[in-house]
Nucleic acid binder design. Structure first.
Length: 851
DNA sequence: GGGGTTAAGATTTTT
DNA sequence: TCTTAACCCC
């Protein structure tokens, strides 16, 4: 099967050779001989040879399984080895020291991948093979880049400023593009659109073409365009079939128009950052040659996550210089759905001629049971490069991987909560525990449960700081001031807060702007000089525009943080939230303050805007001891002593949609996700599945995930829960034979009756009698099913404290979920509150505060 | 232009 | 079931 995509060989024509001067003064390595070998040549075996005279570079004797000669040779040299090589195992050491030629490091979970990467950089620097500015080190996330910087700083004693080219694909591309923007039709000050801006722009274009935006949603087109950009396809290059697939053949036209609009706006989206650089490299060989010369060593982290565009990008650079080291693990490729191409890592040695493949298989993280379970699970995948992880590490307790069943998600949350409290009682820190879910809706039952238990938790991932509405609005104001051509920002806030500038006014502005191909702000200014807009709206518009001008003039004299405050105050934006009585408003005001505080770290407002568009996330303070709750995806790269893995049910995990949309490939990716989940655990991995789950409000009975059957029996124990109310009913289910039979499927004859509508009605009726306490809200309307009484009974008893409430009737209070309200009734510590937004509710007093 | 009502959609997520 | 966004009417 030779290259079904046909993309691996289509860039050969841009190859450039023969250069003497690197064009970047001051970048020459201190050793005159270093970096020379192999430059400008792609396919030859000599990169593997130790042509570099540096003392610590060792010829790789074997490609993998280097426990033999290489290991002994390296061990023999231990005494001369520099400090930073101490403690590396032979394979790690080989990965660090094989500097020249293409190297693929297949780093299994927990095998010290990051250590290898950072040590390798340290080694390059220590041997004088290259200057910091001649190393290209690419990561996927800002977090990974930051961590790598920190670790290198520890190696080389602080100064990583010189590592100018350590960053994400995107940030490196921005850096390149700012220098050569004109060559791809941009101006250097171009702005970067986020997904929200992008979507609004697409919507405008679809509307302008008169297409039915219900049938052909902007979202669908965005993801289609995304897949084109992931493959580095320009409008001209997209396959005819795909071009036709959207809106009966409008695909290409819309894509062209979108790109056209972007260039008018002097903007690009995330995909463009890579695409433009690839175009730049292809059309300007001299520029490419500059970078090929500059980057003497290239390192790519998480190579299994690269998409085709990223591959091509790297390939172009590597044509000038084969010193590429990619690190990754095909078994941890879990981002196929957003364009990652596992093929990149599977075909590395084919694409980069003469590549050395090094396998890191010694695991330093997990116990042998956990490792065995994970390995056996992943062995069910086809098309892997294959690794055999092993470990010497065994915990004194050496727990088996546990599998437990429960009735539904609430019982799941209850029993996991119980286990967490038990572990905590035995002196385990909450920080060392995590709950990893497949989909974020699963988090809710845990949050609810932990709130009632008073158990500290933190949700990782979730809505990000810069994606919050108030932050985006504030940023839009700043953008209008700093980048007067930023139409999307202008549209966002012309009428926020409400100024009486509605669709009618905006439409006039749009028409003029389109006709004259000018930015909206300019068009608006022009319209204000005429009588076209009704006086009321005209004055409002004039006001806003005058404010922009005024702020722009003030910029010089004041610090950008002061300016930010002035802008938000004078625009009436902060006032808008101060007057808002909803529960979120105070938090939003806090976020705005936080936004201004975080601007202090930047020199100017423009610098801050650039940072935000590339770094959508914000460092969160670690803070106190808490259980982490996150998705399996966001858990990649992390590790915990104890990992809870709930929701291992068919349809949820593996997720039905992954199976429907991607078939076997989808299933395998789900399995890799399971593998990632299990391998996050150092000492304890605890898997759960529920017999019933509510999905979109509908109760559905579920069967255990096929992944459970793919775990090795010798390393797994089935936990029977004393308080089990159903679900896995006991030993009976084990060892059933026959087609498709699962040893986890409950065989108790009454099992099915639990999921009948009648039984569920009975549960509802029972629930109606109990006061259910959840997040301070009494949902006693019978919508909630009750589990074992004992637990809730205790809880309820606790909630109805005898002590009289310290609140009194008529007081104004604030509730985290319902906002502001007045107390209209009191029974013990139970308050009846008339909320301004949410209406009348009964709430426990400890959940509200005076206001 | 604001407010109420209704319909659709509801994995995973980074940049 | 619940949230969000669009739509319609005042």
């Amino acid at each position: 099967m030779a290259d079904p995509n046909g993309y691996h060989d289509d860039i050969g024509d841009t190859f450039v050779e023969g250069f003497d001067d690197d064009g970047f003064p001051g970048d020459r390595p201190s050793r005159p001989d270093a970096g020379k070998p192999g430059a400008g040549e792609v396919s030859s075996d000599e990169h593997v040879a130790p042509s570099n005279a540096a003392a610590h570079v060792l010829a790789p004797v074997v490609a993998s399984g280097g426990g033999g000669i290489a290991a002994r040779a390296m061990a023999a040299r231990q005494s001369h080895a520099p400090d930073y090589l101490e403690g590396l195992n032979p394979e790690q050491r080989q990965a660090v020291e094989t500097l020249n030629g293409p190297v693929l490091v297949l780093a299994g979970a927990g095998t010290g991948k990051t250590r290898v990467l950072t040590t390798r950089i340290a080694h390059i620097l220590a041997t004088g093979s290259a200057q910091p500015s001649q190393i290209l080190a690419v990561t996927f996330t800002n977090k990974a880049a930051r961590e790598m910087k920190e670790r290198i700083a520890r190696f080389i004693g602080g100064n990583v400023e010189g590592m100018a080219w350590l960053g994400t694909f995107h940030s490196i591309c921005v850096k390149i593009l700012r220098r050569h923007a004109e060559l791809v039709g941009l101006k250097s000050g171009f702005s970067i659109l986020d997904t929200d801006d992008q979507l609004r722009l697409i919507k405008q274009i679809i509307r302008a073409e008169g297409l039915d935006e219900k049938r052909w949603t902007p979202k669908a087109f965005a993801s289609m365009m995304d897949s084109w950009k992931n493959r580095a396809l320009t409008p001209k290059e997209i396959p005819e079939g795909e071009a036709r697939a959207f809106a009966n053949g409008w695909g290409r036209k819309l894509y062209e128009e979108y790109q056209d609009r972007l260039s008018i706006l002097n903007a690009c989206d995330f995909g463009d950052l890579l695409l433009h650089v690839i175009t730049l490299f292809k059309t300007h060989p001299d520029v490419l040659a500059d970078y090929q010369r500059r980057f003497r060593y290239m390192l790519v982290d998480e190579y299994q996550d690269t998409n085709i565009a990223q591959y091509l990008w790297l390939r172009l650079l590597a044509q000038g210089n084969p010193n590429v080291c990619c690190v990754g693990d095909d078994d941890q490729s879990i981002y196929g759905w957003r364009g990652a191409e596992v093929d990149n890592i599977l075909r590395f040695d084919h694409d980069f001629k003469g590549a050395v493949v090094i396998r890191l298989e010694r695991n330093y993280r997990s116990t042998s049971h956990i490792l065995a379970a994970a390995s056996h699970l992943i062995s069910h995948n086809q098309g892997r490069l294959g690794k055999t992880l092993f470990t010497d590490f065994d915990d004194p307790e050496n727990d088996l991987v546990s599998v437990a069943s429960c009735w539904d998600s609430e019982e799941e949350a209850r029993s996991i909560g119980d286990e967490i409290e038990a572990l905590q009682g035995n002196g385990h820190a909450l920080n060392d525990m995590a709950i990893l879910v497949r989909a974020s809706f699963q988090m809710r039952s845990f949050e609810d449960r932990f709130v009632t238990l008073g158990l500290n938790y933190r949700v990782i991932g979730g809505p990000r700081f810069y994606e919050r509405m108030e932050i985006r609005d504030a940023m839009a104001y700043f953008r209008c001031v700093v980048q007067p051509a930023d139409d999307l920002a202008f549209e966002r806030i012309v009428n926020t807060p409400k100024r009486g500038l509605g669709d009618a006014t905006l439409k006039l502005v749009h028409e003029l702007a389109r006709a004259e191909r000018m930015p909206l702000i300019q068009a608006a200014n022009q319209l204000c000089q005429t009588e076209e807009i009704r006086p009321k709206a005209r004055n409002a518009l004039k006001d806003v525009l005058a404010s922009f001008d005024r702020w722009r003039q003030q910029m010089d004299g004041k610090s950008h943080t002061d300016m930010a405050e002035i802008i938000l105050d004078e625009s009436g934006y902060t006032e808008m939230w101060r007057l808002d009585r909803s529960a979120e408003a105070p938090g939003r005001l806090d976020n705005l303050k936080e936004l201004i505080r975080s601007m202090e770290d930047f020199e100017s407002m423009a610098g801050f805007l650039e940072h935000v568009s590339l770094v959508m996330d914000k460092d969160k303070a670690e803070g106190h001891d808490a259980v982490s709750i996150m998705t399996l995806h966001s858990a990649k790269g992390l590790e915990f002593d104890t990992v809870f893995l709930p929701g291992w049910e068919e349809g949820l995990f593996p997720h039905q949609r992954a199976l429907d949309e991607s078939g076997r490939a989808g299933l395998e990716e789900e399995r890799r996700l399971a593998y990632v989940g299990v391998t996050r655990a150092k000492k304890r991995a605890k898997i759960w599945f529920a017999s019933n789950r509510r999905i979109h409000g509908q109760w559905q009975s579920s069967i255990p995930s096929r992944f459970l059957d793919e775990l090795p029996e010798d390393h797994v124990e089935i936990v029977e829960q004393s308080s089990n109310y159903g679900g896995y009913g006991g030993g009976g289910g084990y060892g059933r034979s026959g087609m498709g039979a699962s040893r986890f499927v409950n065989q108790e004859p009454f099992q099915n009756s639990y999921s009948t509508p009648g039984w569920q009605r009975a549960q509802k009726a029972k629930a109606a009698q109990d006061a259910v306490f959840e997040r301070g809200d009494f949902r006693a309307q019978g919508t909630k099913r009750q589990g074992p009484k004992t637990i809730e009974g205790e809880l309820v008893a606790k909630s109805f404290s005898e002590a009289a409430s310290e609140f009194s009737k008529g007081e104004r209070v604030f509730h985290i979920k319902f906002g502001y309200g007045a107390i209209v009734g009191i029974e013990g510590n139970k308050l009846t509150i008339d909320f301004e937004k949410a209406g009348q509710k009964k709430v426990i007093d400890s959940f509200v505060e005076r206001h």
